[in-house]
Simulated scan of single mutants.
Amino acid sequence: MELTAEIAAFRAGSGDPGRLVGEFRRAVLLVPFAGGSPDAGGGLMSAVSGGIRWFHAFTDEAALARFAEADGEADREWPYLAVLGARLVDAVVPEVDGPAGVAVNVADPDGSMLFPPVAGIVPDACAVDIEADSAEVA
C-alpha cells in the first residue's frame, strides 16, 4: 500500500502505525526548497510550531501544487528535493538544532499526517520522548 493510502486508513481508524511509518520511510517525498531555489541558501522548507521544526513534504507534485495554491504562490516555480522519508528523518532531522519532524501533504485537510520527533520515527538521539542519557546508551 502506498503512503497516501496508509494515511487514509490511519485517519479512518483502520490503519496500523507500524505500516504507516514503514510506508513513510519507503516513500519518495518532495521537499521544496525555502526561498524558491536550492541556490537561495535557505535549505529545505520548514516551519516551527509548538517548538518543533516541521519539514514540509509532499507525496506527489499535485499535493505540492495544492500547497502552493493555498500559500498564494501557485504562479511561481517550486524547486524541490526528492528524498526517501527514511533519509529525511535519519539524515536531515539530526542536523537540526532542536526537535524536528515531518509534515506530509499539509494542504490536504483529509490527507495530511504529522510524523513527530518521537522514537520509532526519528533516530532515538533526536526523539523528544526519550531521555538524553538513555539515547546515548543505545
Rank of each mutant, 00 (worst) to 15 (best):
A63F: 06
D71Q: 13
D124N: 12
A65G: 05
P109K: 01
L81R: 05
R87Y: 02
S134Y: 08
G98K: 09
A5M: 08
A62K: 09
V102D: 00
L44G: 02
A57L: 09
G43M: 01
A34K: 04
E69Q: 13
D124A: 14
V106E: 11
R26Y: 07
A135Q: 09
A12K: 11
A65K: 12
F10W: 15
A68Y: 05
E73L: 09
A135P: 10
F115R: 06
N105L: 05
E61T: 08
L114R: 15
S49C: 10
L44R: 03
D129N: 15
L29N: 05
P17C: 01
G41K: 02
A63P: 01
A135H: 10
A86I: 07
P32F: 00
I7R: 04
A47I: 12
E73N: 06
D108Y: 06
G101Q: 00
S134A: 14
S37Q: 06
E77W: 04
F33A: 00
I121D: 04
D108M: 12
F55W: 03
F55L: 05
E69I: 12
D90R: 04
R11S: 14
A12Q: 12
D60P: 00
D71N: 12
A74G: 15
R76V: 14
D60Y: 02
G35C: 04
F55T: 02
E23K: 03
G36W: 00
A68H: 05
S112Y: 15
V104M: 09
D39K: 10
D39Y: 09
T4V: 09
V137A: 15
S49Y: 11
F115C: 07
L84S: 12
A40S: 15
A100N: 08
A9V: 06
G35F: 01
G43Q: 03
